[in-house]
Simulated assay, not measured.
Amino acid sequence: MATPIALTRYQGLEALELLAPDGARAILLLHGAHLVSWTPAGGEEQLYLSPQSAFATGQAIRGGVPVCFPQFAARGPLKKHGFARTKPWQLVSAEVGDDDALAVLRLTDDAASRMVWPHGFEAELSVRVAGQTLELELACENTGESAFEFTTALHSYLRVGAMGDASLSGLAGLHYLDSVSGQTQRQRSDLLLPGSPGLEDLDRIYYQVASPLLLTEQGEGEPRRLEIRQQGFADAVVWNPGAAKCAELADMPAGGYEHMLCVEAAAIEHPISLAPGESWVGLQSLTLLAPAISG
């Protein structure tokens, strides 16, 4: 029988602590439906959260998994990454089952959202933890009377011990937009090495991502391997600000870029179009295949 999860607080904001029977754990805020922590069963923290991030009503949080909706970045008339990540979401359900913990939050249009985006919608974020896996499902339904389009992403900040030890595979053969240069190119090698020459400022949108990606971190012991899968999201964003841009971010320490890599499930190249009554669902799952990092 499922056991309800009570609301608690995290950094002064309302939160849910999901704790599965096997010890898998996550912390989800009602503010922005923002996931700020994920620890697999028997493992260590897998998400990066900036120690300088603000935790305040109406402000975006740096790190974890922000929900970008209904606009990605500045690719439209809305503020960067849309309004969903700074609005309060409603609790639909939160419970511990026989082998997992699951929470569902909902965001609907209101007078404030219609002033900047005049559409009726209902968005839901579902977060499930069990064993070595985190599942994030974002759904959107058009509840209005006219069609609309949106772009979106689950802006996952993945924690790494040292960027120089990390690589990302599964991108070979894909075309991508380099958001720094504005050029579209083709990924030729199987490994992307953030921080290596020419990649100090890494901001790419990869198109038509169908295969799993694998984040590998080769430290002194056994490599850490994190598998990243997505469904419903056609694109993936890979981002690391590098030293220069990171130093300009007020909510991030100057060396923070060395300990994170964003690998985001996204729908950007072809915006999602929904007629009245239609809905869309996108999923990102993270699975730890090898021991977690230390330090």
Rank of each mutant, 00 (worst) to 15 (best):
R224E: 13
Y257H: 15
H34N: 08
F121P: 02
Q185N: 12
G182R: 08
I61F: 09
L193D: 04
P241V: 08
H34G: 05
D109T: 12
T152D: 13
A54D: 15
M260Y: 02
R75D: 15
V104E: 15
L286D: 08
L134C: 06
I293E: 08
M260S: 07
S126I: 08
C262T: 04
G63D: 07
G242W: 03
V116G: 01
M1N: 13
G277W: 05
L288A: 11
S37T: 07
V127Y: 04
S273W: 07
G76A: 11
L107S: 08
D203S: 09
E227T: 04
S273M: 06
Q11V: 08
Q46A: 14
F121Q: 05
H119E: 06
A84I: 06
L102R: 14
P88M: 10
R75A: 09
V96P: 00
M252F: 04
R25N: 10
L214A: 03
L249G: 02
A20L: 00
F55M: 11
S37N: 01
L30W: 12
G76S: 09
P21E: 07
P21Q: 02
H270N: 11
S211M: 06
L226G: 10
A94S: 09
P291C: 06
F233S: 01
S156I: 03
M1H: 12
A292V: 09
R75H: 14
H31P: 13
P241E: 03
V160L: 10
G76T: 10
S179H: 05
G219H: 06
A275I: 03
A266C: 02
F121N: 04
R159P: 00
D110F: 09
